[in-house]
């Protein structure tokens, strides 16, 4: 599954990325393989989402979250 499919309050561990260019940016922001993420909230209009990763809160669009593969 990927990060955009996570339900609010659920956690997952990052496994891999499907988009290399995007992955560079995501990794710089602390989204690394092996890192645990938790879906904190979804914006009122359904997109973007906010996750907790590496001890802080990060927001990203669903289409960006979909490039992050999780193992659950």
């Amino acid at each position: 599954m990927n990060l955009s499919e996570l339900a609010v309050g659920d956690c997952g561990t990052i496994l891999d990325f499907t988009d290399q260019e995007m992955s560079v940016k995501l990794m710089e922001m602390g989204c690394l393989p092996g890192e645990q993420v938790k879906l904190e909230q979804v914006a009122p209009l359904g997109d973007p989402i906010a996750i907790t990763v590496a001890g802080y809160k990060l927001s990203l669009r669903k289409q960006e979250a979909a490039t992050i593969l999780l193992k659950k």
Binding site: M22, A50, S59, E64
Partner: peptide, 11 residues
């Protein structure tokens, strides 16, 4: 270029 919205939500 691609638009990103990967943004920190500060406390």
């Amino acid at each position: 270029e691609r638009g990103y919205f990967i943004m920190e939500l500060p406390i």
